[in-house]
Amino acid sequence: MLKVEGLQVRYGAITAVRDVSLDVRPGELVALLGANGAGKTTTLLAISGALNATSGRIFFEGEDITSLSPEKAVRKGIAMVPETRDVFPDLTVAENLRLGAFVHRHDRAGYERDLKNMIDLFPVLETRANQAAGTLSGGEQQQLVIARALMSRPKLLLLDEPSLGLAPVIVDLIFGLIARLREQGLTILLVEQNAAQALKYADRVYVMSLGEVATSGTADEIAAGANLQEIYLGKQSNGEGGAHAG
């Protein structure tokens, strides 16, 4: 479904992603793990079209989307949930959701149906519908951003650090939702620092280090292998990432 070949992305003189190749098959939940600065977010942003690749190619359903703009990528069925949890703070929750359906804005009936589905999945959003999105808690904002992305009816959901800065009970809630979306057949590429959670839910895992894919395999293989400890957790021994996995 998604195929990335030899992706390289630079910010000026800094090469954030050196050489990344990965693929995601339909219906899979693939996790992209790695320490801070490994290039995970940059990879997602390049796939979503928000950043331009300096070399390498990205294919989606067999089509080359390497130089597609973000507004075109979402029309192809790729929705991005950024780690910065970018709700539009001055817009209400309802307006945020309505904007999520921007590409389907002429399909009123479909919008109503999608909105109902979102409220089933994220009941808290209904009670907050007319509140400015900026007034929501972190966990509620995360749910809003995911719901907003789903309103575009994506085939592939790019999720960047959905657990970042959230209380453990909310993290469980979010991962429960991710698992549910996956059961409904949505393909997901997930970037996570919380390796324990990611390994529990993912089918396959890519571990990134210094802008490259260091290792990959099924979640079980990666969880069992010493590789991960060295490449990822080893570097995180003084950070919270390691503590979660241990």
Binding site: S69, P70, A73, V74, P82, L91, E95, L99, V103
Partner: peptide, 24 residues
Amino acid sequence: TVLGIALRAAASHFTMARMLGVPA
């Protein structure tokens, strides 16, 4: 209007609005 909401969203975070399909 949806376009009006899109304008306000673009004024707050242009790239995010584009990622939702609002053409720049």
